[in-house]
Design a protein around this nucleic acid. Structure first.
Lengths: 262, 262
DNA sequence: CCAATTTGTTCCATGTCGTGGAACAGCGTC
DNA sequence: GACGCTGTTCCACGACATGGAACAAATTGG
């Protein structure tokens, strides 16, 4: 956008957002007629907007009472947004502490579309990490991916293999059975190790970040050049990562109790 | 809506909602190109949607990095919706307890547009209350309104008088100075009493519901026929209302700490 | 009990304005 | 310096959002 704001706006979108805002702000169920009076838009137009927003789940249409309220898709989206914000805010200081302690790069990532997506990266000095926020890596070649996947309650390896295995390096695990054994070990141990499987000469130690229900919503990893990795560093890093992950978990939003009808 | 879902949907709205959802779900800042790849919509169209959503504040446009993330208006709306939901959920059982204890009608209301709007009403047996959820009453003629207004930090009586005073009953306070004195008393006492000022023969005792910052976000009142109101009932009701309000306050969402840049 | 009002819904002709391809511009990369 | 990949502007086309009007159904009031 060249100059902010000046440009052209899509009118139906603008109006629909106003409708959504109005309904959600009322804190009660509203009728079409009320909305007409409040927003001063033609009845037919508002009718279609309310219908569209309801069909999309951003509003909920209470058929018997013929009223509208905010919908579950809107709520869910707000929740996801909030949770992700919380996660990054809570993780940031912990990541900084880890960087201070080990002088290595620390990554925050989550599962998205059968791959790992980087949510945040903290490192000492200038950027020398290969990963960038927003980039993606395979689940099976990163400690982040393995740490998450190992703690999924209903984990199914085949869901990953669907998108096929890419032999990123000589060390990348592409054999299904070998991978399954590896993941089992991660689950028992509580942390994942990856040795040059995603990128030559680079290794990672990763731990899951569990929400209040114990679901692995994200993972955090410490990555370093393989050759600089002393034998005992892995276990020390894993221990500190685990502690940090536990603290992050505690500051995530608590379990939402489901409200009656929506 | 006759049959649910079947009808006609406004396409620009549907598409824009998908865009909003996509951006908010990523948990990171996205570019136009990414969005094009993910949603498979024409670049020009998406450009306009992102622009529109940003101008409306539902997305935030990070100019220097040329990326989009969820915006403050979206966050604020989600927060309001969440808070109102919490308020009603938290108030409901307390209102039920009060109804059990006094066998009178209990109202929950908040300020909206210079008037009091009823968020919830609980009463024994069939509806015999005059107020309905969603209806409005003047601030100055209800205990709900007076309870809230008396606890506003920057209260200005003139903001109410702008819309003019309506003499609802013979008892309605329409004199500015008299009203000011009345509100002062409410503030000192911690609860509001209204005697047939809104409706003949009907009286109310109201207390504010404060959020974590001490701001009166709503009020709760107990209303009964004036003649049935024993002298000591007012103080007993006020005490129990106050306790209930305190409990509700405690279950409201805690103060959100402002996050850096948005 | 019927008239009157208010509500939600459907219909349809109108022309606005959303649309998207193409061309442009501004960068970083090989 | 040529290329690819961004974001942005331009523009002609016609799909489709639009909103008035008519309808229907529920609610009110006399």
């Amino acid at each position: 956008m060249n100059a902010s704001g000046g440009g052209y706006n899509v009118q139906p979108v603008v109006k629909a957002l106003h409708v959504l805002e109005y309904v959600a702000q009322q804190g009660r169920d509203v009728t079409l007629a009320e909305t007409v009076k409040a927003l001063k838009l033609p009845k037919t137009t508002l009718f279609r907007y309310l219908q569209t927003l309801s069909n999309e789940g951003f509003l909920f249409y209470d058929l018997p009472r013929d009223r509208y309220r905010s919908g579950k898709r809107f709520r869910a989206l707000a929740q996801v947004d909030r949770d992700l914000q919380n996660l990054r805010d809570a993780a940031r200081p912990e990541m900084a502490r880890l960087v201070d302690a080990f002088d290595k790069t620390v990554n925050l990532g989550m599962l998205s579309d059968n791959s790992v997506i980087y949510l945040d990266i903290v490192e000492r000095g200038r950027l020398n990490s290969q990963a960038r926020v927003g980039h993606r890596d395979p689940v099976y070649s990163t400690s982040l991916g393995k740490a998450i996947v190992a703690h999924l309650p209903d984990f199914d390896l085949s869901s990953i293999s669907q998108s096929g295995f890419e032999q990123r390096t000589i060390n990348t695990l592409t054999d299904m059975r070998q991978l399954a054994r590896h993941v089992d070990e991660v689950r028992r141990r509580g942390y994942a190790v990856e040795m040059g499987e995603n990128e030559d000469g680079l290794m990672c130690v990763g731990v899951p970040i569990l929400d209040r229900q114990g679901y692995p919503v994200a993972a955090m990893s410490l990555s370093a050049p393989e050759r600089r990795m002393q034998p005992d560093l892995v276990s020390r890093a894993a221990a500190m990562l685990k502690e940090a992950a536990t603290r992050i978990s505690r500051s995530l939003s608590p379990a939402p109790e489901p409200s009656p009808a929506c």
